[in-house]
Every structure is written in structure tokens, then in C-alpha cells.
Design a protein around this nucleic acid. Structure first.
Lengths: 320, 320
DNA sequence: CCGACGCGTGAAAAAATCTCACTTATATGA
DNA sequence: TCATATAAGTGAGATTTTTTCACGCGTCGG
């Protein structure tokens, strides 16, 4: 069985044009210019040796022939889509749970997930957050990772903030947060200048309030940043203490003061103009974000697909 | 409904490769090199993010995934083929009868028809021959052309040899035969030389015997050719008289003598080395072959498709 | 052990596809 | 009515995709 067919891309153009009854709209759908569609259709008509559209002013109409051809062409495209979709379902299909630190989930993962969903619509992904994914100060102890039910359809993976040593797991370093000072752009236009780090003297510093009882991780502190910036004489215990990191960032956005935040996690706010980074001084804690996958599920295709995608995304962040 | 699909050509390559279980054979089917298939498949696998084939030494095997994907891909291609075929059936479908002079049918049309069939498999074409398609010497009288039943599914067209004036018909000139001397290549290697036209003295001339009762058309004669060639003193009434033109050519092929034949109609014999044209001297009668279509059917798509194709083929002959 | 065979690779060539700048035709509305 | 905007068409040139070429690898069969 050998198929005698025109360039298949022209059939795709035909289907889109016939559906929209507009070269312009079809072009938009296929992300090309209307001219491209025009050429494709013309080529197809030439190949077939009969016209598919009646070109009226400002409107297209299918010819008798075009109308006759459309359903089967559409069916063909649907077959292709179905072939791929169902096979992806076979290969990758299933559920995947990603548990990560709340800030990472809220400020980074959730913004990038739509892309993953587009690339892998057949993977039903559930995001979960847990403070347990943040290594405690004395580190190395990892709980819960080994208790994965291997038969479970819901494969679970973790993104952890910590030192990268997790027994019985495949570990990939994503990136280390780069903490820098951030504030509302309005603050820069205010009366008090903020040109050099020492100007911070006259500003309200927003601190992450560490609950000592929780044995909190080694978060970046203003003390550390000010030291790197070479600023002395600022009492780090001044300013506002806020326990919730999300609330802290909101405060910075609202112009309440200057916060320390990870460059990578506030990308969206900076792009949107809600936050600015007045100084190019960053501190990097020894800890980083890691993708941690229990060995038992590491070979599952859902996991490898997610891992491959996540590492690619993380690489962009590292470079950018 | 917007389809998210890989380059469709790669699906075609996949189907062919999967069917043959060989890149090489698939390449042959699609008239490309095996490398091209290799690249296409690789690209598709990259797009899909899973392998379609297991590459063994000297043999391919479909992966689980490839096997899962194949049926729907095939179905898609079949849909496309069906879409086009059925629409062509709607547009062009039907029967077409082409009546032409016997020699034209046997020596030219029949060799070119397979191409038309390939281009228009939906048109069932019947070849007919009739001496009536050759204008009689007193010309202008055309019989039978007007008596076409317009409702008839069997649309009839004619190829006529004559002067080109046919009332009530669309007429296109195809080409005028160019008569030249032809003989078997063996004759040239024989003892009697055939380097210049006057050498024909020593050869047997094969004549088309004209049946005077039939009011035969103005065929080219040796008298005319010898005059153009500037040869005198050959008695044209010598040589062998043969009444059937096919038989006459057979005789030439068998080395019986030298015949006068139309360059265009003996192309195949020359290419096959059964005949040679020792001299580049041709005579062109005033008559030519014409495509003659009764007005009543001239607008039918079967006719326009045939006409377009035939004129293109005839143009090649005129140039070549 | 050698040569033929089938597939793979990367760079270069060829072909297709797309875009750009400009045109046409006509409907809209000031 | 006439300028304006819209959708499509054209042909040349740019771009991207596809194909080829030259060569490499592993192995099967004599």
C-alpha cells in the first residue's frame, strides 16, 4: 500500500482555512502569515487540479469540491492526533505527585507547570507542598522518602531545599537561590534615596521571622547580605519581622520596606514591574533546590519525562 | 479544534518504515535516500520523546510504542487518500472515450496513457480507433461529431488527422507528423552503404499502398521526401507496396527496407534501438493531429482534464 | 577474516516554506 | 462620495526544513 498524497502540510492548512473560512484566522492558528496559507492552498489546488475555495471579497467559501474533501481530511488529522495522544497515554500516562517547599511551589513551579502540561497532557500532575521538604538545620535526615508504595499509581517525587544528600534516591541539583534585596519600584521614587547599599540605613528591612522551635533551615539573613555588601552599622534586629514568606514578599510589593528574596523565585514580579532589585549583590546559601526521586520509581516514564523537563527549565534559570 | 501535531511528513515516513520494517525500503518507496528516512524518524522520536523502533543489526523492530501508534497513523493516511480520491471521483469521475486514427492510437497515445491514468485514476478511459478520424482528401466534411448524446455518461472526444476545421467543436492542434526515412539499424551495418540520401537507390523503399477507392488522405510519399532531399532518378514506383501502416513499420524493423514514418510516432522504436533515422530530413504535410471536442461536452471536467493533459504531452513532442 | 549490508552522523546542498513589500478589490463609514 | 480598512494575491528573497553526501560502525555470511 503506497499512498499517493500531496504535501501533507497543505492538507493541514486546508483544514484550518476551511474551519475558519479565513486564511487570516487559519494563519493565526498555525502561527504563520496569511500569505503562507495562501501559498499552501494554491499549491494544493494546483496539485489536485481543482479549486477548493471561492475567493469572495473579504470572505471565503468552500467550493463543492472543498466541502466534499473536508470531512475526510479532518478525520485524517484526528487520527494522527489520536495516534499520538493514545500512545503517549500508554507510554507516559498516569499520575505524578510533586511535593515541594511552599515558596518554591508558589513562586516558581506553578508558573512553569503549564508548559509541562502542554508538553505532557497525558500526565495528571498534582502539586503538593510540605515544609518537610526543607532540610532541617542538622540536615541529612530525610523522612518519608522510602515509604513509597511502589505499586501506587500515584508516583511521588520531591523537590527539596537542602544539602543534596538523600539516601536511596536519585538526586539532581536544580539551582541554588540567589538572595538579593528587593523592594517596590515606588520606594525608589520616594524621598529617601536607595542608590548604594548603605542607603538601606534609612529603610525598613523586612525580616523572615525564624521560629526557633521549628529548628528552621539556614535561610539567608540580612546580616549575611549586609556583610557581603560591605555595609556596617545597621542593626539587623531592627525592621519588621514577618513569619510567612509569602506575606513578607507582599509587604515588599506594597512598599512596606526592603526584603531579601531569591532572584529566581521573584522573576515574575520583577518582569511585571512589581518589584525591583536595586543592587546586583547576591548571596548564595550552601543549600540548593534538588529534585529527589525515590529509586523505586526513578525509572518510571512519568518520572523521567518530568525530570527531563524540570532539569531543562532549571538550566534556563541557572543561566538567566 | 486545533491540532497539535509533529511535521506530518515524518508520520508518513514512520508509516512506510514500519510497514517495511526497513528504512532502506521505505526510502525507496518514498523516492528518497535511507538517510532521509533516518532523519525523519529521529526527528519524530525526538518530538514524541520516546523511541519508535528498536535498531537491531540489519533489521528494525517496532517498539511497543511504535506498534501502538502505527494503526491510527495508517488510518490517518488512508483518510487523506480517501478524501482526495473520492473528491476526484466527484469532480472528474466518469467515462471518457477517445477515438483516434489507428496509427496514432497504437504508436503514440497508448504509450502515454499510463501517465494519464496515474494522474486521473478516477477517469475510466476507453480508447477507440476509426479510419473516419482521418480527413478524406476533399476535407472539411466531418461525420458523427454532432450526434453526441449529451446525457451520455460516456463522453466522447476525438483525435483527428486533418486540416483543423471542424464546426461545432473545440479544436486544439496537437502536432503535425514529421516524416523521415527510417530503417533497421542492421541495415546500416550491411554491405550497402546508407550515408547520403542518394544511397537509397540501392535500397528497397517501403511504400504505403494507397487504396484509391477509399479516397485516402494526403499521406507523405517517397516522391515528396526524395524531392526535398534533392535525390533524383529514383523510380518511386519501385520497392514494396504495403497497405497496412503497422505492417509497413514491422517490415522496416525487420530490415526489409527503408520506410517513411512520422518521427513522433516511432519515438519508442528509436529509443529501443529497433529503428534509426539515418537522415535529418523531414517533410511535414499540411495536415496535423487535432484534439476535437464537441461543444456539447467541452466543459465537462473529464474533458478539460484530458485536454489539459493531452496538450501538455503534445507540447513535449513538438519541442523534442 | 573480509566484504557487503543496513543504519547512524554531521555538514552541506537542495527544496520547501514562509515572509516581506506591495497590489487588488470592495465593503465601511465619515 | 471618497478616504479608509480589510482580506486576499503576487513574486522575489529569506528562512527553515528536508535531503543528500561522505564517511563510520557493527555484524552477518561466506
Amino acid at each position: 500500500m503506497t499512498y499517493r498524497l500531496p504535501p501533507l502540510s497543505s492538507l493541514r492548512a486546508f483544514e484550518a482555512a476551511a474551519r475558519h473560512l479565513s486564511f487570516k484566522d487559519a494563519a493565526a492558528e498555525l502561527s504563520v502569515t496569511p500569505t503562507a496559507i495562501s501559498h499552501q492552498i494554491r499549491g494544493l489546488e494546483e496539485y489536485l487540479d481543482f479549486p477548493l475555495f471561492k475567493r469572495l471579497t473579504r470572505a471565503l467559501e468552500l467550493t463543492h469540491e472543498g466541502r466534499a474533501m473536508l470531512p475526510k481530511v479532518r478525520e485524517g488529522l484526528e487520527c494522527f492526533a489520536a495516534a499520538i495522544e493514545s500512545t503517549r497515554q500508554v507510554v507516559f500516562g498516569g499520575r505524578l505527585v510533586v511535593t515541594s517547599p511552599p515558596a518554591f511551589a508558589a513562586r516558581w513551579l506553578i508558573r512553569h507547570l503549564p508548559e509541562f502540561n502542554a508538553a505532557h497532557p497525558e500526565i495528571r500532575l498534582r502539586m503538593a507542598t510540605s515544609l518537610d521538604t526543607i532540610d532541617t538545620a542538622d540536615a541529612a535526615h530525610v523522612s518519608g522518602l522510602s515509604r513509597v508504595d511502589v505499586r501506587d499509581d500515584k508516583t511521588e517525587t520531591f523537590i527539596r531545599y537542602g544539602n543534596g544528600h538523600y539516601d536511596g534516591c536519585r538526586v539532581d541539583r536544580l539551582f541554588a537561590p540567589a538572595y538579593t534585596a528587593v523592594c517596590s519600584p515606588l520606594l525608589l521614587k520616594g524621598m529617601r534615596p536607595l542608590n548604594v547599599p548603605s542607603d538601606l540605613r534609612r529603610h525598613n528591612l523586612l525580616h523572615h521571622e525564624v521560629d526557633s522551635e521549628l529548628d528552621q533551615p539556614a535561610l539567608a539573613t540580612w546580616d549575611q547580605w549586609l556583610q557581603v555588601a560591605g555595609v556596617t552599622g545597621i542593626t539587623a534586629d531592627g525592621g519588621t519581622q514577618i513569619s510567612d514568606p509569602g506575606l513578607l514578599l507582599s509587604a515588599a510589593i506594597d512598599g512596606v520596606g526592603v526584603a531579601l528574596a531569591s532572584k529566581q523565585l521573584i522573576e515574575a514580579e520583577v518582569l511585571a514591574g512589581r518589584l525591583v532589585m536595586p543592587f546586583d549583590i547576591v548571596i548564595r546559601p550552601a543549600q540548593a533546590y534538588y529534585l529527589v526521586v525515590p529509586e523505586a520509581v526513578a525509572e518510571r516514564t512519568v518520572v523521567t519525562a518530568f525530570r527531563r523537563w524540570l532539569l531543562k527549565e532549571a538550566a534556563k534559570v541557572r543561566e538567566g
